[in-house]
């Protein structure tokens, strides 16, 4: 599944009668190579809430079902991957992130699609406020 497919989906709780919010983005833990938080907006004038990925029961079709809509206790700093700058470890720009493919069951990142090709998850080094840093020797498939 792709990040752009998940964005905007309604978030449902098992006993609720309506969606508790809509998905705004997914936070990726680059070291673990997996999605760590689901970020949702509960209303137009309310801020974003980060749910732990463990609370997610299923993703799609048409909605994200979560066990509980309680916010994670300590949310790491969120760096939005989509549109983020990509740098190699040698300090050369490699375009920007277009989309991220992930396994909806486990949250594992399968591939990052950039304007300059696909990056396998084992090439990801770090994600910070400036850029997504990737290992140099990644092949464009």
């Amino acid at each position: 599944m792709l990040f752009t497919e998940v964005r905007g989906l309604p978030v449902l709780v098992p006993d609720g009668d309506g969606p508790v919010g809509t998905v705004t983005s997914l936070t990726v833990d680059v070291a673990a190579g997996a999605v760590s938080r689901l970020r949702l907006r509960r209303g137009r004038f309310r801020g974003e809430t980060a749910l732990p990925w463990e609370a997610v029961l299923s993703v799609g079709p048409g909605a994200v079902r979560v066990g509980s809509a309680e916010a994670a206790e300590s949310a790491p700093v969120h760096h939005e991957l989509l549109g983020h700058r990509v740098l190699t470890e040698n300090g050369t720009a490699r375009g920007t992130v277009l989309d991220v493919a992930f396994a909806p069951e486990t949250g594992r990142v399968l591939a990052v699609f950039t304007t300059r090709g696909e990056v396998p998850p084992d090439r990801l080094l770090g994600l910070g406020d400036h850029a997504l840093v990737v290992r140099t020797a990644w092949a464009v498939r």
Binding site: L87, G128, L132, V133
Partner: peptide, 10 residues
């Protein structure tokens, strides 16, 4: 030129 950590932070 920015000084960037391998973690991606400038």
């Amino acid at each position: 030129r920015p000084v960037v950590t391998l973690g991606g932070d400038a």
